[in-house]
Amino acid sequence: MSSNLINKIKLLANKKVNIMEVCGTHTMAIAYSGLKSLLPKNINLISGPGCPVCVTPTPIIDSAIELAKKGLIITTFGDMLKVPGSNSSLEKEKSNGNDVRMVYSCFDALKIAQKNPKKEVVFVGVGFETTSPTIAATIKTAEKEKTKNFSVIPAFKVIPPALKVILEQKNLKIDGFLLPGHVSAIIGSKPYQFITEKYKISSVITGFEPSEILEGIFMILKQIKTKKPIIEIQYKKVVKKEGNPFAMKLLYSIFEESDSQWRGLGIIKKSGLKFKYKYKKFDALQKFKTKLKNAKEPVGCLCGKILTGTVKPIQCHLFGKKCNPSNPIGPCMVSSEGTCAAYYKYGQ
């Protein structure tokens, strides 16, 4: 079936098109399966900003490190541990004897808090709309079970406003978007309407198997050919037009939109989430009076530009030399969804 699709893609690919895969999991799947080598040269796949660890700015890492040094239990997803802050990383702080723990779910962090009632437990909350509802559900449980020693550093991001910034870039022309499957499982297709209505860019919400990605590319090319850009759903087995309204309602009962800083993209309006007033006691930054301080990006690291699709990893002088998975300089090499990590592990 896949070779059939590739032939059909070849027939449609009669001019150069730039297709951005927004989600880091797509980037990894494309690299892992070697899809690029099978596609015609006219199709230029560009990695986007959809790696939550990568877009988390250094001040968030620095604040988590600061709290770890104060003796709090810091919990987060595995990928966050190695990300370099200004002077250290959570992994280094762990080896210095501070209590830093990796969890699979925010709910596991809540359980750690309940088992250690005399200690404060902080969850470093990164992720997009796939992840943030799981944190909202955990906060709801913490509220119900009156857990007072649990809080979250809210560093969540919302995808659609970032795509708007990508489309406004003058040095990169996008012809189509492979939109993220699991973010869309929560938000549905409506929040992307501006992409086709205002910018007239073809877009397909796509699954993560290589055959699904090929189908997504094919659907984009077909839209380009017929000059009818719409938000199509390839990943219908999981994504409904309306998304998961229950999860969205729960999410926005705990959080509200706020301006947020993205690595590489700067501050984007209404692209982050902060705690609503009623739940601000769960905001670790407020609870421990921690202010986010400006921080410099690692010298020579092009992660920010890679996240906007304007530079590819091989154009970075550090890539594969000073910067590699065992000694990552920037987060694009750290995260298992990072573009640099994908290029390093699987080649071009």
Binding site: G127, T130, P133, T134, A185, F246, L250
Partner: peptide
Amino acid sequence: GLDLLPAAKIGDYVIVHAGFAIQILDT
């Protein structure tokens, strides 16, 4: 956790992310 998917029932295939079911798979 089924907190985000209260309608899920035994026998359903679900997509699980970070410890929570986020959507029912439509076979």
